[in-house]
Amino acid sequence: MDIEEGPRGVTVEWAVVPSGVGPLFLAATGRGLVRVEFHAGEGRRERMPERLAEQLGAEVVECATGRLAEPVRQLDRYFAGALRAFDLPLDWSLATGFNRRVLRELADAVPFGTVVGYGDLARRVGQPEAAQAVGAAMGANPLPVVVPCHRVVESDGGLGGFGGGLETKRRLLALEGVLPEPLF
């Protein structure tokens, strides 16, 4: 069987890798990186491949061809402070409609070391009244860190929410120089 075409049409490769914010679950199709998940401890790690297979109608296999080599290399460089912009092919299969528009705008127009408000991002995609919907899009982001939803904050300077937890968001923003490093 060709790794590109499993029995249901698409094969997804996955791996769990260490990072500066704990273990990350990474998955890629032949089109590109499709999923990044925080807190990929053993219990969650067992469920993630099955859930991804259901979402994509795909065969999901543990790293087989090296599709994840470049995403892992770039994430390592990012967490070491040596990479400011990811240059990876992304598979947007897990984001649709408004969410996809918002996430693409975020990925393309909010660079390392900067933040944007939920309302500002809503205006950028032509939906000025959709700040809450932008928050929902951030919560549904299938590619956190690479598509930097940690850079979206409240207009009053508050951090807002974050699917990886607020401590993870603080650590990512500190890594990018937006917040000071924690003292402890």
Rank of each mutant, 00 (worst) to 15 (best):
P49Q: 11
R170V: 12
R104M: 15
T11N: 08
L173E: 04
G135W: 10
E46Y: 14
A53I: 07
D156V: 00
H150M: 02
S155R: 13
P89F: 06
P23W: 02
G9D: 09
V16H: 05
R123V: 14
V125I: 12
E50V: 08
E154A: 14
L175T: 02
I3P: 15
L90F: 10
G117S: 15
D76T: 12
H150T: 02
M1K: 10
C63R: 15
R73Y: 00
A15C: 12
A131V: 04
E5F: 11
L26N: 05
N99W: 01
R45F: 10
G126A: 07
F98D: 00
L68G: 00
V21N: 05
R31Y: 12
R77A: 15
E4P: 05
L90S: 02
A130D: 14
D91H: 05
P144S: 05
V21F: 12
L179S: 05
V147M: 03
V116E: 13
M48R: 12
V34G: 04
G157A: 14
E54V: 02
V10C: 09
G57E: 08
V21E: 04
G9Y: 12
G30N: 09
P89Q: 03
T65C: 03
A131E: 09
V17N: 08
C149T: 09
D108Q: 13
K169A: 01
R35V: 04
A53C: 11
V10Q: 12
A80H: 07
A130R: 11
E62S: 06
C63Y: 12
G66F: 04
R45L: 14
P89W: 03
A85P: 03
Q74N: 11
G139H: 06
D91M: 05
L143F: 10
A40M: 07
E5Y: 13
E129T: 12
A140Y: 00
D91E: 08
A69R: 15
G165E: 10
A28P: 15
G119H: 13
A82P: 06
A58T: 08
